Amino acid sequence: MLIDSHTHTKYSKHASGQVEELVRSAINKGVNVLTITDHAPYPIDRNNRLLLSELDEYYKEVKRCAEKFKKDINVLVGLEVDYHRNYINFIKDIISRYDFDYILGAIHYVYINGERINTWDIEKLGVKGYFSTYISNIEEMTGCGLFDAIAHPDTLLSGDIQPKMFEKEILNIFKEIKNNCISYELNCSAHRKNYYNGESKNVQLGHSRYPSLPLIGKLNDLGVSFTIGSDSHTPEDVSSGIRDVAAECKKIGIDEVVYYKNRKSIRVKINNLLY
């Protein structure tokens, strides 16, 4: 049983492929459960997400494909939703409009002295104040009760951030994550992403350091649940990296992952993802 709980289509603007193209690619690759999680409408960065005027069309198109291909694959509809305390009412409104299966919370933007730093600005992630603000936003997001899982929380390890420091801070808020039943995403896109080495000032393709396996092992010991997704932005990349990450996680004692349907978690043995 192959699961991919983080995928994007043309609705995200910086991704490509129609919904049906993504579904057909997933079927061809043997995916059994596919959750489409295009970037939700948000007051900023409109060129990288669904527009509010497209939300109805998006929801209905995913549902149409779910019905059309139901004999071949279980297609679920979700959103990847950016979090910031200033937009909490906006977020509540968006996710309450439809019966989504899965709401994935994310931090893509951090403001430092009035400047917006994006998580993909990997050469800037080491600037003073970025890390502490990012961690503060993660803590707020986990405690607000709106999300099923946290998207790629360790993606900032693509920049000049020390893994040990990240691990320490994340573990400090894991009791809150667990008590709020929020899953931690095993994001499988690192092999397609760059890594910025702060010492050499070099950018290396495919060397990103997430998911952080030492941290994942400690979270597992705390009983935290995990989702898994390719974070694909093209139909060709659906399911990419999932079996490799699942195999590494099995080695450190991860026994299962979950996916969400009707905002409820469903457990799947990790062995099922490997064959």
Rank of each mutant, 00 (worst) to 15 (best):
S5I: 02
S5T: 05
H6I: 08
H8R: 04
G17I: 02
Q18L: 13
S25K: 06
A26G: 08
N28K: 11
T35C: 14
T37F: 05
I44L: 13
R46Q: 10
N48L: 04
L51W: 11
L51V: 01
L55A: 08
D56T: 05
Y58S: 07
Y58N: 00
K60D: 05
V62N: 02
R64I: 01
F69E: 05
F69C: 04
K70I: 12
D72G: 02
N74M: 02
V77H: 10
I88W: 12
F90C: 01
R97Y: 05
D101N: 11
I103Q: 03
G105L: 06
A106T: 09
H108Y: 07
I112E: 04
G114C: 12
R116S: 10
E123V: 09
E123Y: 06
G129D: 11
G129P: 03
G129W: 00
Y130T: 09
I135T: 04
N137H: 07
M141C: 05
T142E: 08
C144L: 05
G145L: 07
T155E: 01
L156S: 05
S158T: 13
S158W: 00
G159R: 05
G159Q: 03
K164T: 07
M165H: 08
I170W: 03
K175L: 11
K178H: 12
C181D: 15
C181M: 13
I182R: 10
E185A: 09
S189G: 09
R192W: 09
Y195N: 10
K201T: 12
G206Q: 11
H207R: 15
S208W: 01
P211M: 11
P211E: 12
P211D: 06
P214K: 12
L215Y: 08
I216K: 06
F226S: 13
S230W: 08
S230H: 10
S230E: 06
P235S: 09
E236K: 13
I242Y: 00
R243N: 02
R243V: 15
D244Y: 08
V245F: 00
E248P: 00
C249R: 03
K250W: 09
K251M: 12
D255T: 13
D255K: 15
E256K: 15
V257I: 15
V258T: 06
V258H: 01
K261M: 09
K261P: 01
S265Q: 08
S265R: 12
I270N: 02
